[in-house]
Simulated assay, not measured.
Amino acid sequence: MVKDLSEKALKELIDEALLDNSIPTYARTLIQILAQQQEILRKEHQVLKRVLGPKYERALRKDMEEDGDSDLLSWTAFFMLLFFVLYVIRQWIKGARFTEKVKVNGKVAIVTGANCGIGKQIVRELVLRGAKVYIMCRNVELGKEAVRDLFSRYGCDSTRMIVKYGDLNDFDSIRRFVNEFNREEEVLDILINNAGVMFRPKFELTKDNHEVTWQSNHLGHFLLTELLLPKLRKSQGARIVIHSSKLHLNADTIDPDVVDSKKHWGRISSYNRSKLAN
């Protein structure tokens, strides 16, 4: 039973949520509507109690015994509190966010692994802020599908989203991508090494004779960055962003004899090592 949440505590919780600008407008509106409904129920409860007296109390107790449930007022308060707690947890998990209204008009960027997830959202932000973005991914069709989605859902300019094939597990493929980029662009302003794999089910080596997770997450990006440095140096204020993970804290080593060894391979440990290298 959730009957012990005081009206004062609930009101303070609601007031705090309504004044918190970090909570989206739609969420604050929902909280306000729920608060109004809760206030109406509270007043109705008071009126019925005043008019009917003991009869209302007996009827309420009987109804609660039959339903095996708490009164609607308490459950409304409970779900409002639960919603607020879950929202706070979600915001904490998302971590810090960039909220400055910065424009990158005319800038050229490359984002790896950008057909879904974080990479796709990075492309969205860069394009909406004015950049031209090259999307490097292993599956060109999925990349084009992401472009169509960003165009239809967010209004991103599809002419400033260029999908190019590039496989981080193939050094030759990386070199071809860079050669093609160099023919099309004079300068690179932003390089975001986002692509990555994790928790692979078995040990595998790439055609370059490196463990797949190790090459995908680190060696491939390392080579890509080295080959693009001349273009980055031509930009004023170029940036290289590497998407890492706190799981690097659990890594044991990045010794070349270990990271490519089947004997020392592990679904999680291989990922942790690659992130430590990042």
Rank of each mutant, 00 (worst) to 15 (best):
Q32I: 00
I33T: 06
I23K: 11
A35V: 00
L5G: 00
Y56L: 06
A17M: 04
N21Y: 08
K11A: 10
A59N: 06
D20Q: 03
A59E: 08
S74M: 04
I40P: 00
I14Q: 07
S22L: 05
V47S: 06
S6P: 03
S74Y: 12
T29W: 07
G53P: 10
I40C: 07
D15M: 05
I23A: 11
I40W: 13
V51G: 04
K49E: 15
P24L: 01
S70L: 02
L72W: 11
K43L: 13
D63F: 14
A35L: 00
D71A: 10
R58F: 11
I33N: 06
D63M: 12
L10C: 06
A17N: 05
L19R: 14
E7N: 13
L72S: 12
V47P: 00
V47D: 12
E44T: 10
A17W: 03
S22V: 02
I31G: 03
I14W: 03
G53K: 09
R58W: 11
G68A: 06
G68C: 06
Q38H: 14
Q37P: 00
E65P: 01
D71C: 13
P24M: 01
I14F: 05
H45T: 10
L41S: 09
P24I: 00
D71E: 15
D20F: 03
Q36H: 02
L41F: 12
I14N: 04
L34V: 02
L5Q: 06
